[in-house]
Design a protein around this nucleic acid. Structure first.
Length: 847
DNA sequence: GCGGATCAC
DNA sequence: TATGGTGATCCGC
């Protein structure tokens, strides 16, 4: 609906373009291009927005520079080889070219503005735009002469065109009109694909076939004037009107193609009763699309443009060609397609945006012909996905059938506001957004596993932070608990400077598909009912292999277009890999804490007699959780694991908390290391603070590490001088290799004497529980949590890394670790316990 | 999985 | 005074 809609061919000044500038068709009352640029520049210069645009531009330039360097290193030998490869692929694509479908792209002209003009005649001959002072959705064609365009802030538009009338949007109305249009479209393709309120693709291949045998009165439409009574049925017998005679009610566009202007003789015939005009449309694709546009206009008094072509990519470009109120067809033969493509600027193609345009331009590519000529080079400079896409475009290929709307992958809410810097306000805003999101989720009965927050500061810098939990969430509270922690981390990271925000958003994703749900249910039930037969990982591997074998012939056949293949890939990943992933997850879940906890809870004397409630003990905070379901409990553990949120539920009063925090700082300064020696040392130190939440500990440790007060050099020496029993050593030095070979790490064994106080070797705190299973789980969780916390704050290095030394290598290790931890560590450590042995052994190892 | 970017509308 | 909101995808960690 915005600037992307009218793509710009002018590339003289990218930055100006990005701000909504465009060619000015230099109407009499309009402004010329130079003037427009000047006014926009004056309004923009010096703003924070502009500053950020400059910054982004620099990044793009750097990208281009890198690309050019890469290009310079390519040898002619490499290029020749690439040429052969690419051409072989191009040939296969060519053989698979499918010209048998007739795809139509229908696009309402200046939709919102047109609706507003229709409903308020006073606006008809005035420059108008729909939107607000800060942002415009669309403008009418009069306003466009002044350079007023979609995606331009209203206040700048006003400078360009002081007479501009800005109408606030009325989406309900647009939706209603859109529905009317869609009802018409459905007659030609019940499976049409709506891209937005004002745009849709149709595949009219089938309709065309059927239409060949239709009698004339099935293609005949009664012509109404503006005053006519609603009648959409083809009925009355009248002479066929040629295109030139067709009555077009609203004079939306002074620059409409002449054939679509209202004929002058028609003005006299304003009585619908007397007027017995009708139109008969032919049986060709062109006639069908004329009919569609005619009916749209009769029904809504609005005009549409359309493109007809053998695939969606071309149809889209075509609909732009004779806009407004026009149509264009590419005939279904190769010559016509290539002729059309020849001088087509790549920027016109959907999917090629400003950045891609600029990058390709740096390689001398502006038109599709040039895109084709450089195909070998492109295959060396861009990812496979990208150059395949480019090759499709340059051959005029595209999707030949319309994909059914797949399942939604994410849902989000975001809002821009005037600066908010107070943390409390930020939290409550976040809470509001979560509530809204939860309501939207409820409407579609969706639950997801990943919560992402988005923050944009007053300098327009955008940041996103995500967290994935092991079971799905959907309520406002659940989402907020996660979002809050993400926000807290960001606030803490900048402390004591406040986050100066201008936008906040919350998104949820990771919706389980049907297969996921089934598996999840089965696995929970199965596990609750004792028989926890783990599905083997090898079983999954087999399945994956099967899938590959099945997909491969499909892909290599090259019968399908690039777009089709992308779609089928997606389908496969939905149907099959998801199954596979689920199994992996399932087998991992077997070893997850809640399994142990469930057993624990069975042993508890349940004071709660409610049949639905079960009491679980959280291995992180050691609080009893009354949860209706394992799922809910699991969520608790996840959240608890992810951050210090539990503190808010904590009964501990603030004075207590702060006093323990002081102690903790001291202790945890040393607790980064998992050295045995240290374990014993801190064990003694720690006796007095048994009641502290592990959750609090982590927060404290974060703070202290931020303060940079850790004598890590010292600790490191201490540690490395120890005998090789350190868990740390094996983790740091061997895990990479071991993990890549899918072999378990050497277990790191801690021995605990019966009756002895249980002190977690990770957080160094004596644990309230005497249940070794629970303690075991705690250590496991605490270990993972420590790592996760470290990773969340990118300023902090992994557990054993000195904060300030060898920054480059440290960073490398840090990210190295991220991956593996992300893949394996969370919840995946498993435990082996011999309950009746007086000398218990605690094994910690990573799967 | 995460985060930044790009793109469309 | 003032430059959007929603969803998808890709790439490089």
């Amino acid at each position: 609906m915005y600037s992307t809609k009218e793509k710009n061919d002018n590339d003289k000044d990218d930055l100006l373009l990005r701000m909504g500038l465009n060619d000015n068709k230099a109407g009499m009352e309009g402004l010329d291009k130079e003037k427009i640029n000047k006014i926009i520049m004056e309004a923009t210069k010096g703003s924070k927005y502009y500053g950020n645009e400059l910054k982004k531009e620099k990044q793009v330039n750097q990208r281009i520079k890198n690309m050019m360097q890469q290009k310079a290193q390519i040898t002619s030998q490499q290029l020749r080889k690439a040429q052969l490869q690419v051409d072989r692929f191009a040939m296969e694509l060519e053989q698979g070219r499918d010209l048998n479908n007739t795809i139509v792209h229908v696009d309402m002209d200046a939709f919102y503005a047109a609706v507003e003009m229709r409903d308020n005649p006073e606006l008809k001959d005035k420059p108008i735009a729909v939107g607000s002072m800060s942002m415009l959705s669309t403008s009418n064609y009069i306003a466009r002469r002044f350079g007023v365009r979609a995606a331009m802030p209203g206040f700048i538009a006003k400078r360009l065109c002081p007479q501009l009338i800005i109408v606030p949007p009325n989406f309900d109305k647009y939706r209603a009109v859109s529905k009317e249009v869609k009802e018409i479209l459905a007659d030609y393709d019940p499976n049409f694909m709506a891209m937005s309120l004002d745009e849709a693709y149709l595949n009219i291949t089938k309709h065309l076939q059927e239409r060949q045998n239709w009698p004339e009165d099935k293609r005949k439409y009664f012509v109404k004037t503006e005053n006519a009574i609603e009648n959409d049925q083809p009925e009355k017998e009248v002479d066929k009107l040629s295109e030139h005679e067709r009555p077009i009610s609203p004079l939306l566009f002074e620059d409409s193609p002449p054939d679509l202007q209202t004929p002058s003789n028609f003005e006299e015939q304003n009585n619908p009763q007397i007027l017995q005009n009708s139109v008969v449309f032919g049986t060709s694709a062109e006639e069908v699309v004329k009919e569609i546009r005619f009916r749209i206009e009769q029904k809504t008094t609005l005009t549409a443009s359309a493109g007809i072509a053998p695939n969606t990519m071309l149809a889209k470009v075509c609909s732009d060609k004779n806009k407004p109120n026009g149509q264009y067809q590419i005939l279904p033969n190769r010559q016509a397609v290539m002729g059309f493509i020849k001088d087509l600027p790549i920027r016109k193609v959907s999917g090629i945006g400003k950045v891609t345009e600029k990058m390709l331009k740096a390689l001398g590519i502006i038109t599709c012909t040039e895109l084709y000529q450089q195909r070998a080079l492109l295959s060396l400079l861009f990812s496979e996905t990208s150059w395949h896409y480019f090759l499709h475009i340059s051959l005029g290929l595209g999707s030949t059938h319309l994909a059914r709307d797949g399942e939604r992958k994410s849902m989000s809410v975001e809002r821009t506001f005037s600066e908010i810097s107070k943390a409390e306000e930020q939290y409550s805003l976040c809470q509001e957004l979560c509530s809204e999101l939860a309501q939207d989720l409820q409407k579609e009965k969706l639950k997801g596993r990943t919560v992402t927050i988005k923050l944009k500061n007053v300098n327009f810098e955008v940041k996103t932070r995500a967290s994935t939990v092991s079971s799905v969430v959907s309520t406002a509270e659940e989402i907020f608990t996660i979002a809050k922690e993400l926000l807290r981390t960001e606030i803490d990271a900048d402390f004591p400077r406040p986050l100066r925000l201008r936008l906040m958003g919350v998104r949820i994703s990771g919706f389980p598909n049907e297969e996921d749900k089934k598996h999840q249910q089965r696995s929970i039930i199965g596990f609750l009912q004792a028989g926890n037969q783990a599905l083997s990982v090898t079983g999954c591997m087999l399945e994956k292999t099967d899938k590959d074998q099945f997909v491969k012939p499909l892909e290599t056949s090259h019968k399908k277009s690039f777009f089709d293949k992308k779609r089928s890939e997606r389908k496969w990943s939905h149907q099959d890999t998801s199954k596979c992933e689920t199994i992996v997850k399932e087998s991992l879940q077997i070893s997850q804490p809640f399994q142990v906890l469930k057993k624990t809870s069975e042993n508890l004397e349940t004071s709660d007699n409610s049949d639905n409630f079960q009491i679980f003990t959280c291995p992180v905070c050691f609080r009893e959780q009354r949860s209706i379901s394992l799922e809910a409990f699991n969520k608790h553990v996840d959240v608890c694991l992810d951050g210090p949120s539990i503190r808010e539920n904590s009964k501990m009063n603030s004075s207590n908390a702060s006093s323990t925090e002081v102690n903790l700082k001291e202790i945890t300064n040393h607790s980064f290391l998992l050295c045995e020696k240290q374990y014993y040392e801190t064990h003694q130190k720690n006796v007095e603070i048994t009641s502290v939440d592990c959750v609090n500990l982590v927060e404290t440790r974060n703070n202290s590490s931020k303060a940079g007060s850790i004598d890590t050099e010292h600790s490191k020496e201490e540690c490395s001088s120890l005998p090789s029993k350190s868990c740390l050593v094996s983790l740091e030095n061997q895990d990479a290799e071991l993990l890549s070979r899918h072999e378990p790490l050497q277990p790191c064994v801690y021995q605990v004497t019966a009756g002895q106080a249980l002190v977690c070797p990770v957080c160094n705190l004596e644990q309230k529980t005497s249940d070794l299973m629970l303690f075991n789980v705690h250590v496991d969780v605490c270990l993972n949590k420590g790592i996760i916390q470290e990773l969340k704050n990118d300023k902090v290095y992994p557990l054993n890394q000195p904060k300030d030394s060898s920054r480059s290598t440290g960073l490398k290790q840090s990210t190295e670790r991220t991956k593996r931890v992300g893949l394996t560590a969370k919840y995946s450590a498993s435990k082996k316990i011999k309950p009746n042995n007086p000398r218990y052994t605690l094994d910690i190892f990573f799967k």
